[in-house]
Structure formats: C-alpha cells, structure tokens
Design a binder for these strands. Structure first.
Lengths: 185, 185
DNA sequence: TGCAACCGGTTGCACGTTGCAATCGGAAGT
DNA sequence: ACTTCCGATTGCAACGTGCAACCGGTTGCA
C-alpha cells in the first residue's frame, strides 16, 4: 500500500527524465486517464458499461478499455470479480489513485477559475476546493472505506454532500442539463 | 488579470462537457504543455532556444513551437520582444499560469511518492510540496514580480532555495547528472 | 564587407495513438 | 430459445508525435 507503482523504486527507467512532474505527466497526461479516474472517484461508476454510458464526454469503448487496462497496469485501479455476474468486473481505486484527490481538487478549482465551465459542475469543484485539505482527507478516508475495504459510501459523507450541492444547483438552473447524469465534476 | 482565458465566460463551448476537470485536461492534458510550463516556471527559461536546448526530456522544435503558440492562445503565456535581439522573444507566464503553482506542487509530490523518480529532482518537489500553501503563495508572488512586472528573481527567494537544494543533492549523488542543467523538478 | 553564429520557427515524412462504428463470444434473465 | 447485458476487439480513417533537415532574418566580429 505504500510502494511506488510499476516496477518498484528503481534507478529511473533508462532514457527517461526522472523528474516527478514529467513522469506524472507521462502517466496521466492524456485526454482520458484523469477523466476516467474522475468518473470512478466522483461518479461512483465502477463497471465498464457504467463508465461508457454515463460519460458526458462520450469516451469510445476501445479507448475506455485501453485506459482501464493501462490504469490497472500502473497500479491506479484494481480489478475484482462481481458476485452478481460472472463476467462483470469491478474496477476499484487503489491507494495511489485515492491520493490523487488533492490534485483533482486543484484541477477542478483552476478550471472553474480560468475556463468556461458550466455553473452546476463548477459548484461541486468549488466546494471541494474550498473544503481544503481537511475535506480532502475526509473524502480520501471515505474512498478508502469504499474501494479498499468494500464498504458503502456513508449517506452523510463528502460524496453525498457534493452530489447534493450539484443537484440543488442543477434544479435551479434555467436550461436543464438533466439529460446527463451528474457524473463529473 | 481576473478573466477566464479563451473567449471569455460563455455558455460552455458546444458539444463540450463544461466539467472543470475535463476542460483543464483538454487544455493541459498532453505530453508537453505542462512540461514546457514547468521549464518556464522552475527553470527560468523564457526563450525558444533556451527551452529547446535545456529540456531534459528532449522536446522537438516543431512540438515546442506548436505548444508555445497554443499556450499563448490559451492565455497561459505572453510574448514580449527582447531589447537585446530584435527577433528574440521573451515568453512570460500570465496570472493564469502562475496559479498553476499549487497544481505543479501536487503533481510533483504525487510523482515523488508513487513513481520511480530521480532523488535529486524529487528533493525539490518534496521541498515545494512540504512548504505548503504558504510557500506556494510566496513563490507565486515571486513569479508575479518576475513575469508580470519584469523584476529579477530575488537571491533569497523560493526559486533560489529550490535550486540550492537541488544542487546540494546533485553534488552529493554518486553518479553525476551534471551534463544536464537543473531545469526541471 | 563578408561570414559564422544565433534567432524563432517551418517543412516533409514515418509512425503510433486516437476516434468512430460495427461487431465479438460468453453469461444471465425470462 | 431468445433477448439483453457483459467486457472488450476489429478495421479503418484522422490526428498527434518524433526526427532531421532547412528557412529567412539578425547580430557580433574579423
């Protein structure tokens, strides 16, 4: 639970830079990896079809498949069988992925501040950003309980709070965007 | 200085998702954008050749050119003439880019924690992450003075502190990586 | 005045990745 | 038996990246 992902702590892969920012960008810096993690983290979607159908950005099935297996290989997601259906796969966040919560919070905060985001979705990002490290820790503990130990999300948890804020904002917004499920931030 | 980049606050570009995380990923989620910003921010490189030659990751000139113009269009960099050479261009961070400092700090911290980074470079990332919001604010003010107002970096500033820590770590490391200038984090 | 070094790029081309639509074989429900 | 749902895979076109050569203009120096 506290080891680096991949092949362990080694002499820095040859030809690569060894810079923490660069390596992180190399791993997560593409069009979809962080979006998939966002949907698992904030949307609560943990199955292939669920991620495919509820994605507002409309990810293609082959891309989703390749991202899921890449994230599993990188140690950010883990695969588990689902008792309800033999070939249903439950993708769960690992500790490494859970520790991306502060990064997601900053990503959302910066986007809300500088990019033309939709108000309902910005509210959730703002709420999480304003909650600060203390709220992030609560959320991370909630995710650990859900994804590492298999317990359900508490009804009064951070995720519930964020979803409630979104739903309130969405219901009072003039042009309804209700054709989408409130998956993303 | 406090407007969103791009076309201003508009009804969310059509067909796009409006999610703050998604929009940020769409803008910065590629192999090079954040790496270029890192070199401008932490490496102090502000000219084309400087960025091209001192990049440890070895960016190609056409990619660098396309990223620079994309970042300028997005409002993260601004172009200025250089008095010393008529066709030399000084790329400076804008306020929007300076506000990516916390994101960079988290990116570096997460990478140091979970990926096989090189120790000298990790030390700088750790230092910045451990400094917390208070240190980030000091660094951002320093960058504002340098990039928005054209003053030099103070000798006792955050950047100097980070560079010193890197140099100490690099000089005591066995296998010298001195062929590289200490550009990245 | 000539010339080499430097300035920010551009061009052409090979290659891998992405995006899209259709489809796959196995498992479950009815 | 038939339909639906499951996580993918395939073929194909378009795009992004990586590499090397090259561009016109500017500067410093002999």
């Amino acid at each position: 639970m506290s080891q680096p992902v991949g092949v362990g702590r080694l002499p820095v892969p040859e030809g690569k830079s060894g810079c923490p920012i660069n390596l992180t960008v190399e791993l997560l810096g593409d069009r979809w990896s962080l979006v998939v993690l966002r949907d698992v983290m904030f949307g609560g979607h943990r199955h292939f079809r669920e991620l495919l159908t509820n994605s507002i950005e409309g990810i293609a099935s082959n891309i989703l498949a390749s991202r899921l297996s890449k994230l599993v290989d990188a140690g950010l997601l883990s695969r588990h069988g689902d008792p309800s259906h033999r070939q249903k796969i439950d993708y769960r966040l690992t500790e490494a992925a859970i520790e991306l919560v502060p990064l997601m919070a900053h990503l959302g905060a910066w986007g809300s501040r500088w990019l033309p985001t939709s108000p309902e979705l910005s509210i959730r990002a703002q709420l999480l950003a304003d909650g600060g490290p203390e709220m992030w820790e609560r959320f991370m503990d909630e995710l650990r309980a859900t994804h590492l130990e298999g317990r359900p999300h508490p009804a009064d948890g951070v995720l519930a709070e964020l979803t409630l804020a979104y739903e309130r904002a969405a219901s009072t917004s003039k042009r309804s965007t209700a054709r989408y499920r409130p998956t993303p931030m």
